[in-house]
Design a protein around this nucleic acid. Structure first.
Lengths: 208, 208
DNA sequence: AAGCGAAGTTTACAATGTCAACATCGAGGG
DNA sequence: CCCTCGATGTTGACATTGTAAACTTCGCTT
């Protein structure tokens, strides 16, 4: 397998920007070989430093995973915000656009998504991670709460239910999809239908 | 912390039913300390055998995890079937009863649920696991497809969308709940409302 | 110019999965 | 009845990993 280790330059004692290099290498490992393949030593090898070097920047493995997840959440937030803007521009409802963005992010950055939502080793008390998660949550909330200016505002419970229902729906779909749990259903779909049409059908007003 | 190791009897060389004992100990470890705490050696310690003994029954760690997950899926299938029967008896629609059963299983056997759906180390080609998953999928399908005998049968895409939507909804809810992602929302709920009422609101016809 | 502290390295240790060689024991065939 | 043979356990070993401690290098500040 990969174990890429580029290093033409003679290797100065100090790397220059090891922190960024490690995060970059870590992401590559995660996307290529999965979250469980990301070890401190593998990341160190990938950038050509000693196995204990990462400790200077991240403390322990949890630190590296958490900082990388924070990057993922910031990207995630931007993707959701972009979906909201795009939906506003085209007059579309918020939910379908948000749902597409959510699932597309999960599909295109599967390793990162798994790290963000399935890793037991994230330190949720880390400020950078908390902030990034809040950013994403805010974006999600904004996109989801785009409602046509129609009837009376719903009760607090109904409002929470609506938000949680949409989040659960798209998150469950993304999770099941990445885990291959939908493979059987997908391959049994009529010709011309695929993940995208299935998701669209799920997010269609008819179903919500 | 526990590291319980009961062993009053003098320890015969052969255990008697080590396979079952290991599975039992493994489940206890998983529920008490989480999936990542389940190691071959920890399970062996818990039942008082040598660290290499489990290999005789499960091959490797993946084998133990997979067999335990198969037990979980069989239990899960039974819980869903029971929910369906109960719904049929009371004339309730299938979806809410199934959703409750799904989420309750996840809450009451959180470690097992995590093993079943979040572990990267399950061997999906293992016949016992495949069979157990199929059993659960069938039960889920049965419960979900309970529909009032009303309008015309939907198109294949719509039918798939309906099933996947329900599954995604409850699975996403369970996953987010176990990951603590709903904690903020839950604590902001009006007095008297809790997880159950929130789930009920989500599964109410209004929302589907 | 000096040296101080951040950034890297080396060494070491415990835990784990896994393999190989060996020990034990019970059941079934002579 | 015994005896052997295969399943079940044990011991020992090895590579990998996270992590800590002691040491080294080097850019920046005073």
């Amino acid at each position: 397998m990969g174990e890429i280790r580029v290093r033409e330059v003679p290797r100065r004692y100090h790397h220059g920007d090891l922190r960024a290099a490690l995060l970059e290498a870590a992401e590559e490992i995660i996307e290529r070989d999965g979250v469980q393949a990301l070890t401190l030593r593998a990341a160190a090898r990938a950038v050509g430093v000693s196995h204990a070097a990462p400790a200077n920047h991240f403390g322990d493995l949890t630190g590296l995973l958490s900082e990388l997840a924070a990057i993922g959440y910031r990207r995630f937030a931007h993707a959701l915000q972009a979906a909201k803007s795009s939906a506003e521009g085209s007059g579309e409802r918020g939910a379908p656009a948000m749902g597409r963005a959510y699932v597309n992010f999960a599909r295109q950055q599967a390793g990162m998504f798994a790290l963000m939502f399935r890793s037991e080793r994230l330190d949720m008390s880390r400020p950078s991670l908390r902030a990034a998660i809040d950013e994403a949550r805010q974006a999600l909330r904004d996109a989801a709460s785009m409602r046509p200016k129609d009837a009376a505002p719903p009760s607090p419970l109904a409002r929470a239910a609506e938000a949680v229902a949409l989040w659960s729906l798209v998150h469950g779909f993304a999770t099941l999809l990445l885990d291959g749990r939908l493979d059987g259903i997908l391959s049994a779909l009529p010709a011309g239908d695929d993940v995208d049409t299935l998701l669209a059908a799920i997010l269609a007003p008819r179903h919500r």
